[in-house]
Design a protein around this nucleic acid. Sequence first.
DNA 1: CTGAAAGCGCTTACAG
DNA 2: CTGAAAGCGCTTACAG
Lengths: 344, 344
Amino acid sequence: MTRIDDVARLAGVSTATVSRALRGLPTVSAATRRRVLAAAEQLQYAVSPNASRLAGGRTGTIAVVVPRITRWFFGVVVEAVEDFVHQAGYDLLLHNLGGREQNRQRLLRAANLNKRVDAVMLVATPLRPADLSTLAALGLPGVTVSSGTNVPGWPCIRIDDLAAARTATRHLLDLGHRRIAHISGDPDDELAFTAHLHRRRGYQEAIRAAGLRPDPSLDVESTFDIAGGTRATEELLRRGDAPTAIFAACDEMAMGALTALRDAGLRVPQDVSLIGVDDHALSGVLGLSTIAQPATEQGRLAAKLLLDPLEGAAGASTLTDPGSPVILPTRLVVRDSTAPPRAN
Amino acid sequence: MTRIDDVARLAGVSTATVSRALRGLPTVSAATRRRVLAAAEQLQYAVSPNASRLAGGRTGTIAVVVPRITRWFFGVVVEAVEDFVHQAGYDLLLHNLGGREQNRQRLLRAANLNKRVDAVMLVATPLRPADLSTLAALGLPGVTVSSGTNVPGWPCIRIDDLAAARTATRHLLDLGHRRIAHISGDPDDELAFTAHLHRRRGYQEAIRAAGLRPDPSLDVESTFDIAGGTRATEELLRRGDAPTAIFAACDEMAMGALTALRDAGLRVPQDVSLIGVDDHALSGVLGLSTIAQPATEQGRLAAKLLLDPLEGAAGASTLTDPGSPVILPTRLVVRDSTAPPRAN
DNA sequence: CTGAAAGCGCTTACAG
DNA sequence: CTGAAAGCGCTTACAG
């Protein structure tokens, strides 16, 4: 392995000058810089990140925490963040909680973030009060994406889950539905993010705004994924007196609902209308109506808010007030899964 | 930030002893270890990874390279790898090529892997001869998953793409189909992985084994994703004389095909049968017949083959001969998208 | 614009 | 089983 002093020797300068030239600091003459770059090139020199980080006090790395990388939203967010982060010359440490409480605890143990990253991005990651203290003690900058827990001092990027749910529910109401069910995540799950809590409230608000009363038997909780959508819908049908429409808290749950409805011999939308939230890559294929949310933009913006301050970008801190979340717009996309209820 | 000498002072031992005790080395008396652990706990001490890595010469980090984290197979593989890697106490550096040749080049530039990781996992990542030299020069251990390019000395985990394609095609043949189309990835794409090349060959072999001749007009190339499946199918239909069955090189392409077929007014499987490869999480929802491949197992096994040697696990090197790939089994899953052609 | 020297916080022979 | 000391490969004031 060639080291910095090999380069220094070849270029006929000190290691300090090599360090400055390679990092593009302005205090190096053009001629010297040329010689250093040539020497480094000739020796195929690569700086040792660990030495550099130890001496410089920066890690050049950011941590990204997601509940499950295999779910549509989180995959898209990570892809956007990865791109931005690597463009900026940082490394990306991935943490996938995978629904295991133990993973979240391991992550938050001092040793796993501390001294290891310059900043943290928490995507839809819920935190207990104790976790917040741990994070605060680390003193790291960070950003949160999607709901989860707000961290004081960190900016937050998300959509308006309440409004999204109201829009979805109102779309069903406008079509003439009155028996509208809701399937959503489990509020008791420690690791559950909180988006679905707001979506449930939005659903209930829209129902009430239409002069109806939310019917608890039409509100089923399960896991926030495909299988959960299937189970919730099966439970819904088991309760008898099927709804004429279902608002699923996310597209993946809606997809799971499709299976359950099909197995029950119910057609979408003729027998039951169905709408989700996300605009998953496959929602178009399935003809699923949904509330589209901009996943790539949320990831990209979050990465920018995270890195700009580290880079000391001009106006970085004025881009957003850490106190108030940045809300990105959603959009109703009507496809083939929603229609007026059958005249009976 | 508390440092190792703070702990040493509190415990009344040297920093060397603290280092040994904390890492669980056997050469520390039980009493001393207890005192050190207590002191570390009391001070909330976390080792500095950079200092440790610089002094110790290990990075405690592995790099994982995938074409696109948002695609089903890669997301599942990364999830499995992440779990294994973190359990083993390593960090995971994620690289998502995102279809950009520039990203691949950036990754392979000496500075981006060199001195930064202890080992590399390449998932379906193709390499040019020059890239192979670069990797060889780094002298890093590694493993490849799914096709891509074989790296001398690295184990390789994958399925038998040829056999999978033959099975899929034969399933259609067995149902009575004779005009069987194939939609697959673009062989000219620099960044394309190579799985689809084998799948095409398997398709052609099965066609020939049935005494038929592969028809080039039934073999359409596009991108290896949902949109590519749609475009390829549209092209197929544009050529006239539609096939009675389509074998898509992956489930995501098959899903894209569904859209195109529906838009053309063709029903699956009544008008056209359709089968893919993967057993994507949504294939069940869509009733898509497919050749299931074990993505989680491939990721887990690859992680194990990567880490065991680093840990000096007993028999690590005998687990597999780096020369011959480890082939995991696939399985035909028949759902509702394949049926006999219409009697005409 | 450049260099000598100290220091970043650990781990590792080496000696006992 | 334990410690003193050197060393890992950089960066950063400081001085010029």
